[in-house]
Amino acid sequence: MWATLSSWWAGQVSRTGRPRNVPLVIGTTLVGLLVLCAVAAPLLAPHPPNQLVYRLKDGLIMASPYPPGTPGLWLGTDMIYHDMVSRLLYASRYTLLFCGVAAMVRICIGAALGLLGGWYPRVGRIVDVLLSVWSAVPSLVIALFLIIPLNRLANLTISTIAYVLVLSITGWTQVAIGSKGAVRQLRHAQFIEAAYTLGLKPATVLRRHILPNVRDLLLVEAAYTMGAALLLVAELAFLGFFVGGTTGAVVRGRLEAEPVYAEWGSMLAIGLRERGKLWLLLEPLIVFTLAILAFNLLAEGLRRRRARY
């Protein structure tokens, strides 16, 4: 008993006796924490995201931004007196939501094309061409040139939907390539031949027998795709493009850019503009990196689990 426990703690085996999957454990924990932050943001955040938080000195409002460690403001504030902790927590909602939707759409497009291309040889050639074309153009190029006009659209709902759509139509090629390869491998498996012998039609075999076997792969791809979507959002933010754009806010007689959404991308873009205040840049940067790392670890863990079976 003691030997089993100590070896489990040492990381050699899990409770079930199989080698322990460290990336899966860390990835799941980090992703779980991120989701918890997003869901419970109103409970965890000390202030609402758009509330202005002042500190007084001799009866006068101290000039913003407040550095990290200011009493009651662990991570400081931005230029317009927003508490960074609250802002980061609320921002996880929008960022994960937008990237999550984009990742799901990418998976749907990629899986549909991959399954059809892998299963029907004639469709496969068309899918091959489509994949070659779409993967030849870098995601950043497609996203950037489509987002430039969207960023200046007056209608917030349309620009938000369009932003998520642009994120969705890039980066599905990896999913399609993976699922197409998996279907091609499965096409000559014994259980598929058995299904044909039973008189099932190709479409039915695809739905009943191939799809369930590709599900694990799609789960791995979903985690990778989420990381890729986050990376693209960060890159676009670095170039100054983020969902919703900004509005002008006058703070102590100065016109400051106020992002429409409390979102990590907009925080990063604002942080890049304020180069003297390093924490405004580092905090969203660290959060982005942690989120990408979490999803990549989860994907690697899921891949290892899949490879084991």
Binding site: V22, L231, F288, T289, I292, N296
Partner: peptide
């Protein structure tokens, strides 16, 4: 092994601009 894997995952996850 864990250290090497961690470094590798970090190198793959960090955006180049960061």
């Amino acid at each position: 092994a864990l250290l090497l894997f961690g470094l590798n995952t970090l190198a793959n996850s960090l955006p180049s601009f960061v």
